[in-house]
Each structure stands twice: as C-alpha cells, then as structure tokens.
Write a protein that binds this DNA or RNA. Structure first.
Length: 590
RNA sequence: UGCCUCGUGGUGUAAUGGUAGCACAAGUGACUCUGAAUCACUUUGUCUAGGUUCGAGUCCUAGCGAGGCAGCCA
C-alpha cells in the first residue's frame, strides 16, 4: 500500500485539482514549492514537497522550485544550495521530470494581452541541456512587483504611511485609520519612488494597501506591502533598499509563474482574502492562481520550527544541520533513510486540515519497510564477548556461505571466515537467564548463524566478576547445510571471527527528545535525550571494509546502518538508521 | 477578545445522505538458521445535546474542545 505503484493518493486538494481539470478551468496544472532560504528543509517540508510534486506527477503538471526570498536579513546562499540539494534528493527518480526550473538569470517577460500589460516567466521542466538552470526566485520579480505596487497607488488602493511600527500595530489593533491614508496619489507616487531611491531610513515609512481598517480579518486592515531595509540581498545584491512583504510578493510570484494551485499550510488561511484582494485589484489578463491550505506535519518526539532547529545547531547541541538526529532532510539522509521511505511516509500520513500529532512509529515503519527489502545483510558485533571453540585446532579456518538478502535472491551470497576464536554479542549470553531466553547460557546450545551449533562449557571471569570469555564446544555435524544440520536449537545468534574481523566506529542514534511534545511547555531543550548518541567500536565481518555509501546494510539481528560521510578506508564509520523491531526487548520490559 | 479552521479507535486517515473501512501501534498464535520479515486472528472509534430525513460520521442549530492569525517574519 505504500509502494509507488500504488494508486495515487486521494485527498481534498487532489480532489479540487481533479475537478478543475474536469471542468476545464485549467488544462495544465502548475504547483510550486516555495521555501524561504533561511534554514534547512525538514521533514515537514518533505510532506509539502511530496504533495506539490506528487500532484504535478499525477496530473501531468509541473512544480516550480522557488526561493521565497523577500527578507534579505534572514536569508543566505548556503540555505539556497541546501534546499536545491534536498529537493533533488527527495524527488530523484520519482518526480524529477516534473521539476520546473528556469535558465540561469532569466527574468519575467513583459507582454501585452488584450491591451493589458503582463509579466510571465515560464518553467523549463526537468532541464537536461548544457545551459545552466536555476530555481525561481521571488527576488527576480522585484521590478515587476514594484510596477504592480505603482499600479495600486495609481488606483488609489495603496498609500505611503509614515507611522512607526508601534503606531501601525496599535492602529491596526484598534481598527483606526492611519493619518496618511488620505494622501494624494501624486504624493504617494513621489514618496514611493523616493523610498526606492533610498532617501529614507529603515522603518520610517511603508507602503500600505488601502483596504478596510475595520475588517474583522486583521490582514485586511491596510496591510504593509513594502518596507524599507537597507540591506544586501543574497540574490539581488544592493540593487534594492525596499523589499515587498510576503503577502504582496507571494501571490504575484505565483501569478508571474502561471501557478494554478498555490498550496500552503494552515497558518496562511487568514491571509487568503488578502492574496485574492491583491490579484483582483490589479488588471491581470491571465487566470489567477488560488490558494489552498493543509495541516503542517507535527511529529512526536521532535521539534519542527526552523528557529528551534537553528538553536540546536548554533548552541552545538547537535553536530550541524545534517546531524543524523535532526529532523532535517539532510539529517535524515545522513542517517541512512532513503528518499523512497520518506515519500512512503508522506503518502501514509495523508493530507487534511486537521492539526494532529503523528506518531514516530509511522515514520519508523516506512523506513524499515524500505530497508528490509533492499539492505544487504552483514554480521557485526557491537558489544563483543570472546568465544573460544575448544574442540577446534588453533589453525582452524574455513569460509562459510552467507545470504546477502533473504528478501531478494538477486543479491546473491558471500563467504565469511570462521575460526577457533569468535566474538558474539554481549546481550546474547546470560549466566542466569530468565525463562524463555533462548540465546547462549552455561551448558546451553545455540546456533551460530550460517555456521555451527555450539555449547557453552565454561564461563571465564575477571577479578571483578565480569564475563570476559566463553569456552564452548562446536558440534562439527551441525554446519549449515551439513549432515545433522537440521537438528533444532531454539536460538540463532550472530558472530564474527576474531582473527578476521575489522573494527568500525558505529554511531547509535536514538530520538533527540524524551517527550512526545518537547516544545509544549516552552523549554524544549530541557527535554533533550542525553543518550541520543552512543558511539561504539564494533567487530565486523571483513566485507564491511568495502561498504558503499550508496548501499544500506542490516547488521543481522540488530539494526540497519549506512556509511557516514566521516568514514575512511582505515576507519569505517556507520550510522544506525533504525533498529530492527525487538520483541524480546519488549518482553523483558514487562 | 475578534476573525479563521478543525473535531472518526491509542495515533494518522477513509467513507462526498445508505453495511464505519485502512495503516501504524497494541495483543494472541503459526512459522523461522535474524526474538527480524512473513502469515492468521483479536482489542479499541464518529466531542455533546437537539433537529431535518425512511435513513446522519456526513446536512441544520446550539454548546464543548483543539489549533491558527492579530510582525515593517515567512
């Protein structure tokens, strides 16, 4: 049900899109994903990406990637670059042929339609040619947006206001008209031009829409359209010292790009009347875009706001935006989650207007579902105990066959070395085990995966009483595939040959927070999980020396792992993506 | 406070006036050379009160509850 051959999802937005196509309102669907480059994308954005690109994919449309960059003081090129990389990674092989980009440097084209002036910038879908392409930028439309502002002034629908930010707030709360509301058109035109020319300091004046200061919807109480900011912009440099506000820039950017369905999250619902007012107040010759809202993702045991994520990064509570514990797309990627798993998750949670809290188990399920099918099985011991097989000669050596992936016969098999001295997992031995423990215990038998049945004859301890070595005997007839191999023992455990094993750094990640809603009580940092990262040196089968960062691995009976970017040939580093389900651990908790 | 939106098992969702279904989670069992995976089964739900209707999760009214907005952020 979560495979990508599954029927396309259905939700209220897709229903609207389908109806608009059916009725002939639109012949081509055009969506967009419009992040502000003021931080890294997170899993909530992934939901939006899957929605917008998913619609483009299902309805033969296009989805533009656009930087919503109208606030120069918060935005940076580093974020632009990370956003492009994250989007491409998430939609790669799935909806990349729906990605709308533009030739580098392309700007809106001025045209005349039915005697009306118009600006349009069309998308190139999935550009493959040699020419350089780039995403769309709202800041590329500053000239056009300025033109539209002048149009509003000429129509008497916008005015320059000299009130301070505090006065503006107060007047708006009280529903009072600004003294400058009655300013004449010529004066407004002159003042607005001088704002653009840089004659006034930051905060001294704004351009405001003239709508209705007594509207019950505060966003219609003469909202600010332009503010003065003498600041360098990451994309337009020092060309501008006035910048349009989100509400003014966004609807017009949608229009310029020919967007049909402008999909955003619930908090913009009250802005929709303003979105429509701006577009309807201008003499725009083409069909207008429409805004639809859905509920943003809330995931248990994590925080989602960019501000809080940035705090974790800045205060070094994590190693960076791509720390594998972060809910960022780059963190999730580094952790080893595949894009298909993330997409399956987005599919499974659906699209509604209900603001709920999604359980992490839904995400974890999607990750395991995908990794189980594709990960290569390997043997590795995270917390080793030495085992000596006393009835084998010291020089004993053989190679055993091991299946690479029982879910995928085409993955083949490999040889693993076996000798007299082994390592097994600390958790797989108990001196005085509880009932139903069917791993190794004194006098007990257990199968070594792909190898022999062994019996524990003697427990060796250090002075402190810690178990440091097990002396066992091997049943030579019990070799996998051998004569009496069918003899049943309850438990099967993983192991590696001591002489042939390699060491690897293994990073064991757990959830970053200890409570389902870390930011519910204001101070999310006090709910940080002190054990969210544990680093161990594991003993691994030798084939893991050539582990590829393109592949995923399951260390059998433990968890799924991916090669970290810190990995080197002399010191492999693995990130634990997610553990296997562990019914025994659950049983032990009871 | 005003305005907007939303209330379906524990969680996330479907049912578009006609048998309340799916997924995750939880539980039981089968199988197992991964206590995984797989398979079978089980538990749990329409916020409340009225109304319309042959029939209401769905439509209407009132209430209750939750979330959002009230930046010269997006």
């Amino acid at each position: 049900m979560i495979t990508e051959n599954a029927p396309a999802p259905s939700d209220f937005i897709r229903d609207i899109v389908a109806a608009d196509l059916q009725s002939g309102l639109h012949t081509k669907i055009h969506t967009r994903f419009p992040p502000e480059p003021n931080g890294y994308l997170h899993i909530g954005h992934a939901k939006s990406i899957c929605l917008n690109f998913g619609i483009a994919r299902e309805f033969d449309g296009t989805c533009n990637l656009r930087m919503d960059d109208t606030n120069p003081t918060k935005e940076e090129v580093e974020y632009v670059d990370s956003i492009i990389a994250d989007v491409k990674w998430l939609i790669g092989g799935w909806a990349d042929y729906r990605l709308g980009m533009k030739p580098k440097g392309a700007l809106p084209e001025a045209k005349e339609i039915d005697g009306k002036s118009d600006f349009h910038l069309s998308a190139i879908r999935n550009p493959q040619s040699e020419i350089e392409f780039e995403p769309f930028y709202a800041s590329d439309y500053f000239d056009q947006i300025y033109e539209y502002a002048v149009q509003l002034i000429r129509k008497g629908l916008a005015y320059v206001c000299d009130m301070t930010p505090e006065e503006t707030d107060e007047f708006r709360r009280l529903g009072k008209e600004s003294h400058y509301r009655v300013r004449g058109i010529e004066e407004n035109l002159d003042l607005f031009a001088r704002m653009k020319a840089g004659e006034f300091p930051d905060g001294s004046r704004t351009l405001r829409a003239r709508i209705d200061v007594s509207s019950p919807n505060v966003w219609l109480r003469d909202p600010v359209l332009y503010r003065i900011r003498h600041a360098e912009h990451h994309h337009t440099g020092n060309k501008w010292c006035i910048y349009p506000m989100y509400d003014f820039a966004h609807c017009l950017s949608d229009y310029v790009e020919g967007i049909t369905h402008s999909i955003c999250t619930l908090e913009f619902e009250v802005h929709r009347p303003l979105y429509d007012w701006i577009l309807e107040s201008l003499d725009l010759p083409r069909r207008l875009p429409h805004q639809y809202e859905f509920a943003r993702l809330n995931l248990a045991y994590t925080v989602m706001s960019k501000r809080k994520l940035m705090q974790l990064v800045n205060e070094k509570l994590v190693s960076g935006w791509d720390d594998p514990r972060m809910p960022t797309i780059s963190g999730i990627r580094r952790r080893g989650v595949t894009p298909a798993a993330l997409r399956a998750f987005a599919y499974n949670i659906g699209i509604t207007k209900y603001n709920g809290l999604t359980d992490v188990s839904v995400l974890e399920y999607a990750i395991r579902e995908d990794l189980n099918k594709h990960a290569l099985r390997r043997l590795a011991v995270l917390r080793p105990i030495k085992v000596v097989l006393t009835n084998l000669p010291a020089e004993h050596y053989e190679e055993l066959d091991a299946v690479n992936n029982p879910e995928d016969a085409s993955a083949g098999s490999r040889k693993i070395p076996f000798g007299r001295e082994l390592f097994i997992e600390h958790d797989d031995f108990m001196e005085t085990p509880p009932p139903k423990f069917f791993r190794l215990k004194p006098g007990g038998e257990v199968r070594l995966k792909y190898a022999y049945i062994i019996k524990c004859e003697e427990v060796v301890k250090d002075d402190a009483g810690n178990v440091i070595e097990l002396r066992c005997t091997v049943d030579p007839d019990s070799k996998s595939g051998g004569a009496t191999a069918n003899r049943k023992v309850k438990g099967t455990i993983h192991w590696v040959s001591a002489a042939h094993s390699i060491e690897a750094e293994v990073r064991l990640y757990d959830r970053l927070f200890t409570t389902p809603e870390p930011d519910a009580d204001g101070d999310f940092k006090q709910h940080l999980n002190p054990n969210s990262l544990e680093i161990v040196t594991a003993k691994c089968e030798p084939s893991l020396a050539e582990a590829s960062s393109d592949l995923r691995y399951q260390f059998e009976r433990l968890a799924y792992f991916a090669v970290d970017k810190d990995s080197t040939p002399s010191r492999p580093v693995f990130n634990r993506t997610i553990t296997l389900k562990d019914t025994w651990a659950k049983e032990m908790k009871k």
